[in-house]
Amino acid sequence: MGGLNRRPPALRVHRLAYAYPDGRQALFGVDLRVEHGERVAVLGPNGAGKTTLVLHLNGVLAGGSGTVEVAGLTVEKAHLREIRRRVGVVFQDPDDQLFMPTVRQDVAFGPANFGVTGEALDARVAGALADVGMSEHADRSPMHLSGGQRRRVALATVLACDPEILVLDEPSANLEPVARRELAEVLLRLDRTTLMVTHDLPYAAQLCPRSVLIDDGVVVADGPTRELLADTELLARHRLELPYGFRLD
């Protein structure tokens, strides 16, 4: 505490509230602070406001009250471009994310939008594909990959933008067990500030030392993942539970 030139946190969300245009209030004042290098799971039942929160982090949704800061830069229209470079969102369904004819073009799409060209761009693409173990599939169509491979390519499309913070929306959804484990290995190797939105509690326990529990648009618990998951009463109050047969030891 009390360091003189402290770096601003990787992410700071302050009293964020938001109602959809149809009047449905999704967030009621969320507070969240993520330091550089942390991996944090955002847990919560369906409809808790998790995805709404994610869409605020890169300014896709805005217009409510409260603030979001990414590495010291406030999310607002004036620097939306820089914010979107800093916040890499991997969407829940890779089919929503991948749309180019080849894997290589899809991975190059993001950094090219942010002005990376020539050899630097090639290096970014090669690096991101190597990080997720998909280098040999660079010239294939994303349509022809398996679900797990598509998920890893979707991750590479975001890694290629070299984001300050990686935001994953339900990364383990619809993955077979092996693909799920392979993705976990990739994510653990990455060593990046990560915010992982999920209701896959074992995945949170495996990947994120810290968890934040969101329900009804507010943070209801924030602490070490194991402690949160051990509190069965807390989980039950918010429609969460560990899968059958899963033990925390």
Binding site: V60, R84, R85, F91, T117, C161
Partner: peptide, 23 residues
Amino acid sequence: ERGERVHLAMLSRGWTGAMPEPN
């Protein structure tokens, strides 16, 4: 709805309306 999600995903990767043509 899906088209909308695709569009959001493109925006999130810095899309500004034109396909980037790096080289």
